[in-house]
Amino acid sequence: MTATAAASTAGSSTNVPLLQADGVTMRFGGLTAVNNVSMTVNEGEILGLIGPNGAGKTTFFNCLTGLYKPTEGQVRLAGVDLPPKPRAVVRAGMARTFQNIRLFANMTALENVMVGRYCRTSSGALTSILHGPKFRREEKETRTRAQELLDFVGLGDSTEHLARNMPYGNQRRLEIARALATDPKLVLLDEPTAGMNPLETRQASDLIFKIRDTGLAVVVIEHDMRFIFGVCDRVLCLVRGETLVEGTPEEVQSDPRVIEAYIGTATDEDDADKAEAGAGHNSDAGKGSAANDAEDS
């Protein structure tokens, strides 16, 4: 536990619910990937979503963002029901990143972020063709805002680089900038530190605090326990598609069921630290495994 972690628990979260997911269930044929999961995210809160490989975290994400239509249950953002359409979800104020980075590879960093502005602009074909005043104003705004966001995530110098040419860590940042460009109230980050070294991971947690400090709520999926417990205000642990524990990092960290879920059986309270280290290790070993792939699909 570092000093930043202490700061985060004292963070600016209020108890106004922003996102409410009630009894979300997702079945693929006979397989129940997510079973009756409920989740509440308050304004200005950082919520962690953890769970072993194949626990249904990404599937749950896809249900929230409208990529899947949940078999049962509903999702509400700021009191409004979200239809299961990605575009409507983005417009309502929830944006996401992807576990395996999905940038527009042959566009520049600036263009990638400008695409994120798409849903907040409305110049149609006619004004685009005629270069009407609305087009020029919006285009200028889009460009300025995109540049601001690149500066915000620390990519101000890479504006003109093609996404595919950027180093891995910067691609993750760019994806976050692109999500922020949609003016969300809530961002969902799917494994933002996967494949990062410790320095990059630290920078990522700083960025997440920075995003929270602008008044946004953040939901993070991660395998890296140290990262999750250092960043989040609250943690939700999914196992086999069901909620196992929900609570503060301390509560979840010391819950024997969580430890059991990650490393089988734990006999001693003192093993908690080892469990944590073990879980971090587990996340690396699990990359690209069959279980992980199954969760993606």
């Binding site: 990529l67 983005v90 527009f104 590879a105 400008m114 695409v115 685009s128 949609t182």
Partner: peptide
Amino acid sequence: SRIGRGWVAIREDEKAAEAMGVN
């Protein structure tokens, strides 16, 4: 224009474009 950027985004990765709110 904005529309042209949308087209490129769709060509590059349709799912990601959709998730970014592109129609």
